[in-house]
Write a protein that binds this DNA or RNA. Structure first.
Length: 362
DNA sequence: AATGCGGGGAG
DNA sequence: CTCCCAGCATT
């Protein structure tokens, strides 16, 4: 039996084997009880680059707050971002709102029903379009996500670097061949992702109890821990944030982040970024309006420290609380506004800011 | 083809 | 520590 005919046999047996495995290992997840494209769309956007365990409570809260796409379309974008707070990749929330409005206002509340038309919506790429098309409408189009790359790379011994365009096409083509043998495209797509999440895991795949063990090129050659091949990512950038937390009469000065940077449309404080960690307030180039304030009214001579690890940046933050006298409260730097504690609670904020507020004010 | 974008959990 | 998660948009 040569390798080629082994591979062909594996291809025809792959989907049925996963389907069988799935029947016994399927988790009970809320978005598996519906074919409502709105709910499936919402769950898929939430789950982009996000583990099920992390995304699930957000899904529940979103469905509670916005039971239909029309409800979401009506929402204030700030409230939507506030609900999204802590999930990261906030462009997902902005695109969610944009698409909800588009579907409601331009499509009469009806989601597009094909892979190709779904792909045209903001925030929907190849993976999400395939997921919605198959789960909600039964279209026979394969999902290709991180789980699928891992499972296929191992079972079929694909050593191509999955970050390259060539490999992406190779995996997509393979996935298309495989789904042809599936009984039900939706179940099969769920099955392969579930299999990757539970059985064929990144670190310690459960090969001993794997139904594909004797067909898996990686297992048979002992290479499962080396696949998939993925170019290592760029080193994380270190940044130093110095926050001046202006306070007056129980209110804090905050501003919306609008720059082309992290945390767009979330709220934080007056920020001075430096190339090196700062030890004292006098080392900072302070805003003109705050100078007299800083001389006399700084509350925190030693700042609160904060750390935020992002996948692409490591942020070291320091917070100086500064009491602003009434005489200067209308002289805030451009963009800053006073907010009461209640208002601040309703603003969407990065986790770094929320953590600071919690540790400072409870 | 490269880069930027969050935050958290697992090993 | 490192890796990576039901990826996508922009350049």
């Amino acid at each position: 039996m040569n390798w080629q005919s082994d591979a062909n046999k594996t291809i025809t047996a792959f989907a049925p084997t996963l389907d069988r495995w799935y029947q016994h290992h399927k988790r009970d997840l809320p978005w598996r009880h519906t074919r409502d494209p709105y709910r499936i769309w919402l769950s898929e956007i939430i789950l982009q680059q996000t583990r099920v365990a992390q995304g699930r409570p957000y899904y529940e809260r979103f469905i509670e707050a916005f039971p239909t796409v029309a409800d979401m379309a009506r929402a204030d974008e700030r409230d939507l971002l506030r609900l999204w707070q802590g999930l990261g990749y906030y462009s997902r929330a902005r695109n969610l709102h944009k698409t909800a409005k588009y579907v409601t206002q331009e499509l009469g509340g009806q989601f597009p029903e094909t892979y190709a038309s779904l792909l045209a919506l903001k925030g929907i790429g190849t993976y999400t379009a395939a997921a919605i098309a198959s789960f909600a409408f039964g279209e026979r189009v394969p999902v290709v996500d991180g789980n699928v790359y891992r499972v296929l790379a191992r079972v079929f011994g694909v050593v191509d670097d999955i970050t390259t365009t060539r490999a992406k096409k190779l995996f997509a083509d393979l996935a298309t061949r495989l789904i042809a043998f599936a009984r039900d495209p939706a179940d099969y797509n769920q099955a392969i992702m579930e299999f990757g999440a539970i059985q064929c895991t990144p670190g310690a795949p459960d090969c001993l109890l794997c139904p594909l063990q004797q067909q898996c090129r990686a297992f048979l050659t002992g290479q499962q821990h080396k696949l998939p091949v993925k170019a290592k990512k760029v080193p994380v950038k270190q940044r130093f944030f110095n926050y001046l937390v202006f306070r007056n009469n129980g209110q804090l000065a905050m501003r919306e982040r609008t720059a082309k940077d992290i945390w767009q449309q979330l709220y934080d404080f007056y920020l001075i970024e430096t190339d090196e960690p700062t030890e004292a307030l006098r080392d900072l180039a302070l805003p003109v309006a705050s100078e007299p304030v800083v001389q006399t009214e700084a509350v925190d001579r030693f700042p609160e420290a904060g750390q935020q690890l992002l996948s692409h940046q490591r942020i070291e933050a320091k917070f100086w609380m500064i009491d602003v006298p009434d005489a200067l409260k209308n002289a805030l730097p451009e963009g800053l506004q006073w907010y009461t504690p209640d208002e601040i609670g309703r603003l969407p904020k990065p986790v770094l800011i929320t953590s600071y507020l919690r540790q400072k004010f409870g």
